[in-house]
Design a protein around this nucleic acid. Structure first.
Lengths: 220, 220
DNA sequence: GCAAATTAATGATTTATTCAAG
DNA sequence: CTTGAATAAATCATTAATTTGC
């Protein structure tokens, strides 16, 4: 498949690692070598040169990229996990609301609430941040939020939302960590059905890297 | 004053550029050298070694840092500018609202609006992002927004906000770029007084970097 | 004045993101 | 789409300014 093993047939512009080289590198990575220092790189290079043409910088870049993409995968997983919790929470809330309305026989209440401006605004901002983060441009997420503003026309009618206003006056109690919610026991007094959109069994700790930090670099 | 010129007095762990070295480097930077390649770095290093001990990597890092911090300053300026526009917009809106209520002799309307849940929610998120950005930890701004969720209790009364709901149904029209608003002519049909909290005469274009990109690096 | 304590600058690394070859 | 290569952003760490209490 890949022309990696055909050594010195065509002057390739970049290093094409052979199957054995990749296997050995991955083995070393799993073995704990995350950021090899200069002498380690020398050693690895001379070892891997038995299986094909290779330079020191190839080894350097390989470990750098491998570590970075490992972390990237972890972050994406964590993000998905939080997104799951958010959705669970949202579904739970809507379900609770629905049940409440069923009790009171007000069928229109649920839809009315889901279209409420608060809910929509939250959704817009959440979606925006989600998109930016999943796009990979983290900084834009906050930068662009700055550049948006809310320019509604003059309200022709009064708000009649004094109850909501009072409920949201304290900012600390207004927003709560979604992480704090335990998805396994969504509601103690009522069993709610929530769709399982994503697996929520990820047990991730970003700090499990042992990062044997070494300080070798020779840029000039 | 500064002991920068005293060369080789104490074994410093990091390079302390002399006054002349910094002057020359800044001159070169202004002259258009943003990311020198290996040969340029060699040349600059040998030139600057006349004024004090210096290595190639020092030159490499100096240009890297200088360019990055230049961009950083620009971004921060732009952020402040957008924040200014946001505040202007907010003030204009409140002023307009106030005028409108004055006409209709409803003194309580303004305060009612400022306490409205929409306004408060926007404020909370904006403040949060602002704080994170100005604290310098850009990533946290979006990451933490994920971990917050909105868990209100069941509303005991109906919302009565159908008008707002309809107004905000289309997300693209709901939020508009603050940049689009021209602060010099805030309201065509009425002259409004707006406090000038920040200078808004910044004319920034992030794309004025000529970045003579060169591809030389020798890590191993 | 003058050090201890803070804060701001900035040199050096590490990490994240982008580009482009295959 | 994967991944080597390169660049840019973020972070760490040390030094210089600056403040503060004496």
């Amino acid at each position: 498949m890949s022309p990696a093993a055909t050594s010195a047939s065509s002057p390739s512009s970049r290093w094409c690692p052979t199957r054995e080289q990749v296997m050995i590198l991955e083995e070393m990575y799993r073995g704990g070598i995350k950021t090899p220092n200069a002498s380690q790189i020398q050693h690895i290079t001379s070892h891997l040169s038995l299986y094909g043409r290779i330079e020191g910088k190839n080894v350097f870049y390989w470990f750098q990229n491998h570590k970075a993409r490992d972390r990237q995968k972890l972050r994406r997983k964590l993000l998905m996990h939080q997104h799951t919790l958010y959705l669970q929470n949202q579904l739970m809330y809507n379900q609770k609301l629905y049940d409440h309305n069923q009790q009171n026989n007000h069928q229109s209440h649920l839809l009315h609430h889901l279209d409420s401006p608060l809910h929509q605004l939250y959704q817009v901002i959440f979606d925006h941040v989600s998109f930016c983060v999943f796009k990979g441009r983290v900084e834009d997420a906050s930068t662009q939020l700055f550049s948006y503003t809310w320019k509604a026309d003059l309200p022709e009618s009064s708000y009649n939302t004094a109850d909501l206003t009072n409920r949201f006056r304290d900012r600390d109690t207004m927003m709560k960590k979604a992480m704090g919610a335990d998805p396994t026991s969504p509601c103690p007094d009522r069993t709610l059905k929530t769709l399982e959109l994503f697996p929520i069994t990820t047990t991730i700790s970003l700090k499990d890297q042992c990062t044997t930090s070494t300080k070798v670099r020779n840029p000039s």
